[in-house]
């Protein structure tokens, strides 16, 4: 090792750098232009009254307005409710399915993976419109089935009723969210160190102990990943709301993302919309951090 690199070595290093950046260049260009730059713009314009005809810095006014905005509060509450229900439900359900499926033979396991992935592949919009029909008040399947088995009496307007609408949304979100977690859990469970499992079986561990003591720690990274992506996706719920309820009735299904869309694209309040986006990003960041902390403390 030389302390001062010779001319040749320095030249080689410069060449290495050039080659590295040549490979990176296309990705970096796209990333800077269409991710980093708009992110910066979102932050900057959140301090302005940016709209169709004005662009003035107004300090923290947008953020102050949010604190007093009842609809924003309601939307934040709904969004957090959706996240708090759907994230644990998706995680537990997909773990349950995966733990049944991963021991099956190739064809069976592949079949179930495809089935639960289907709603994602079919496409959000296609799935949403068919659910809208099934939830429909007069010609919907759900009312017919529930009436004929005697669970309800008379037709319910599922998406038009403040008490039910958000739960219908959560149900559809659930069916479109479990595909990826199931695939991930199946492969994680299949990769659990078999020698540890056998060793503890010899030691007389029951299935429950086997799961918590041996398998659970080994699939922790997968669980964490699933928690984080499901949280991010649930926070960003939009298409379901826009297509099914437009945030109604009486804001019962309004969410942050829908509210942003409404302010930015219906009322042209870009500045206020961006400020809400920044708050949403911060809230998501906080949730992800909590999950990381919990997962870490669980490991120790």
């Amino acid at each position: 090792m030389q302390i001062t690199p010779s001319m040749a070595a320095r030249k080689r290093m410069r060449r290495e750098n050039l080659i590295g950046y040549a490979y990176m260049m296309p990705a970096i260009l796209f990333f800077l232009s269409f991710v980093i730059f708009p992110m910066g713009m979102a932050l900057v314009t959140s301090f302005t009254d940016y709209s169709m005809d004005s662009f003035n810095f107004i300090g923290l006014s947008n953020y102050r307005r949010m604190l007093q905005d009842r609809v924003f509060g309601k939307a934040m509450g709904n969004t957090i409710l959706i996240v708090l229900v759907s994230v644990p439900a998706v995680t537990l359900f997909s773990l349950w399915v995966a733990s049944l499926v991963y021991k099956m033979n190739k064809h069976a396991s592949s079949f179930f993976r495809v089935v639960f992935y289907m709603p994602i592949v079919t496409g959000t919009v296609a799935v949403t419109v068919v659910w809208k029909w099934m939830f429909s008040r007069y010609n919907g399947l759900l009312n017919y089935v529930l009436n004929s088995i005697g669970l309800i009496n008379g037709n319910i307007s599922w998406l038009g009723d403040e008490a039910y609408a958000i739960w219908c949304i959560i149900l559809i979100l659930f069916t479109t969210s479990i595909g990826q977690p199931i695939v991930l859990y199946i492969s994680a469970l299949a990769n659990v160190d078999q020698s540890l499992v056998e060793a503890s079986e010899v030691d007389g561990a029951n299935n429950f102990q086997l799961f918590w003591k041996i398998k659970w720690p080994q699939i922790m990274n997968t669980t964490l990943y699933i928690l984080v992506i499901t949280t991010i996706n649930s926070f960003q719920i939009f298409a379901l709301i826009q297509l099914l309820t437009s945030g109604g009735p009486n804001n019962a299904t309004n969410t942050i993302m829908y509210n942003i869309y409404y302010h930015a694209f219906k009322l042209n309040e870009y500045g206020y919309g961006n400020a809400m986006g920044i708050i949403l990003a911060i809230v998501i960041g906080v949730f992800s951090m909590i999950q990381f902390k919990l997962a870490r403390s669980d490991k120790e």
Partner: peptide, 20 residues
């Protein structure tokens, strides 16, 4: 930087993207 950008909500940048 690439990794941390992935954790951010993609939809938040849609308004500036539209303007861009």
């Amino acid at each position: 930087i690439f990794i941390s950008a992935m954790a951010l909500p993609k939809q938040v940048i849609l308004i500036p993207l539209l303007k861009e």
